[in-house]
Design a protein around this nucleic acid. Structure first.
Lengths: 330, 330
DNA sequence: TTGAAAGCGCTAACAT
DNA sequence: ATGTTAGCGCTTTCAA
């Protein structure tokens, strides 16, 4: 049996209240008593039970993190940042992967509520607005990260995807490209939609016709990009550049291009988005937009804890900047 | 205020005991009563408080996962597998990154004990044997994953690193190489030590001299491998092949080689280990040993839950097979 | 088939 | 400065 506060109290010949006091660094305990208790705690290797504590305090010092997939290289850095920051502030984080599956997202939230999690950081699919509304109704602290499913209900920590995509396409244009294709991400996400908008906007601003053939809907995976590129290559008039919605897709583009014996960027320029670790390891190195992933994770935790500590702290969205990272692929 | 079992009881005009019974699918509840309670639970959107439940049951249905760094590409798949399997079996997982820092490892264990975690999956540094001994003393369920710090105390889920390295070096030899260097991983880990042993063993078996100059201690990072390769290149008699302790290091080798205008594998063959996602994306594609990362994660959970469910289940180490993945770099 | 009561390990009024 | 008591939300004897 584990040693409890009772055991300490008995051993020290005081009440458990007194022990509780020294445990929580409260005043009103005699120096000698405190010392004695501390000593016994040490000796008996006592560890307070946070479940019991959580029950009475209505606080678990645990937060939930709901993401699509930790094995997608975009997320590990975010998760690392969240865990680092949380740990630093005395919180633990429970991870949950959903694969953008509505049902699993719902299950995750259910689970977290039952576990009395203090707050939630989520990256949900569009279509689950209702889930957030319910959470909001019970005044549950939540912050959205990367993508938003519902504006002005819960704060979002992300980037300006429209602007970011715009900047990349603009760069492509300035490099002399007029025939620019876009391989979109999963259009059930706001990020993919916004990047597509940014792409269109840039073309429009530079008076370049938006061709349907040049826009292929994908899902952020290497594989979908690989196939899409093959399609592109089959066109009567193939593009000279492709802007992939994320770096993983860009890798898929590379693969298709290599197989067709095409040179990057001579035969076709390719640009990515996110600047995951992989980007600088590809040959040629990938030109891409860098997202401040680590910082996003940190901010999300900061914002969440602010909401936890102050119920009605009104918190604004945190929109961070991206950077154009020029390498060799454009 | 959240709705509790009391509210349901009052609303249904029964005792909380009865509500608890239906919550836990116990028999001895009238069909009508059960139906009525179920309906009210639904209506009031009641969610049992698992903290309270955890306190009385002495079980939190939560496990801890201690790893060096989720942003090291070796780990996400393992974490994903652990989370998937745990979720599937009704458990949540709390993640903790330690960067192989002894102090943080200790802190993590402390935290998890206090949180009344049901079991632990750990990937610890050598030097923290004591921590596991203590855990064992309190009969805490633990499984080691990837690396072992203490044999025969807690089961290990991993691969045979000696054999795996041996196989790769043997392949290099059969490809005609005699001057083979090894860039080791962090020698505070058993994996790095074992891979080094396997390398030496293969050379010995094939009567190839083991040259000190050809063995450079690294730490599994791209950067250390980059520098090590530059050293290698400066030798009077540089190797014709290098076996990097992991794929990330291999990427570092690539970088140094490209900078020196050397061709892979013509000028220098390079082999990796692990087969992370990156390996097939490098140019030339990396020849490496594949670890069954996802399966390791799953097994770890299975073994752990077996230990949780049956205190004195004697469980053996799970040593999985690796596969030589021949691509273009050798 | 149902309920009353004790207790899981802790914190927090409220006494003294 | 210290102790008594109630109670957090639940499960589980034990009794009816």
């Amino acid at each position: 049996m584990r040693v409890t506060i009772k055991d300490i109290a008995k051993e020290a010949d005081v009440s458990i209240t007194t022990v509780s006091r020294v445990l929580n660094n409260k005043p009103d305990v005699g120096d000698d008593t405190r010392a004695k208790i501390l000593k016994i705690i040490e000796e008996m290797n006592y560890n307070p039970n946070s479940v019991a504590r959580g029950l009475v305090m209505q606080k678990t010092h645990t937060i939930g993190l709901i993401i699509p997939d930790i094995s997608n290289p975009f997320f590990p850095q975010i998760v690392r940042a969240v865990e680092d920051k949380a740990q630093q502030l005395g919180y633990s984080v429970i991870l949950f992967n959903t694969d953008n599956h509505l049902e699993r997202e719902r299950k995750a939230v259910e689970l977290f509520k039952s576990k009395q999690i203090d707050g939630l950081i989520v990256s949900l699919s569009l279509g689950n607005e209702e889930i957030l509304k319910n959470l909001k109704a019970s005044n549950y602290p939540v912050v959205q990260i990367d993508r938003s499913v519902l504006d002005h209900i819960y704060p979002l920590v992300s980037i300006d995807n429209i602007k970011s995509a715009y900047q990349m396409v603009e760069y492509l244009i300035k490099k002399g490209h007029k025939k620019i294709a876009h391989l979109s991400g999963d259009l059930n996400t706001t990020t993919a939609r916004d990047r597509l908008s940014g792409y269109k906007k840039a073309l429009k601003d530079y008076k370049i016709e938006i061709k349907k053939d040049y826009i292929i809907e994908g899902d952020y995976t290497q594989d979908s990009a690989y196939k899409a590129t093959q399609n592109l290559l089959g066109l009567k008039s193939p593009p000279t550049a492709v802007f992939a919605a994320n770096d993983l897709s860009a890798a898929g583009v590379y693969k298709a291009l290599f197989e067709a014996d095409l040179k990057i960027p001579a035969d076709m320029a390719v640009a990515g988005h996110d600047d995951i670790n992989l980007a600088s390891l590809l040959k040629p190195e990938l030109t891409t937009m860098r997202q401040p992933k680590y910082e996003m994770g940190e901010r999300a935790v900061s914002v969440l804890l602010k909401m936890i500590d102050d119920e009605d702290a009104e918190i604004e969205d945190q929109i961070l900047n991206t950077d154009l990272i020029i390498r060799e692929s454009v």
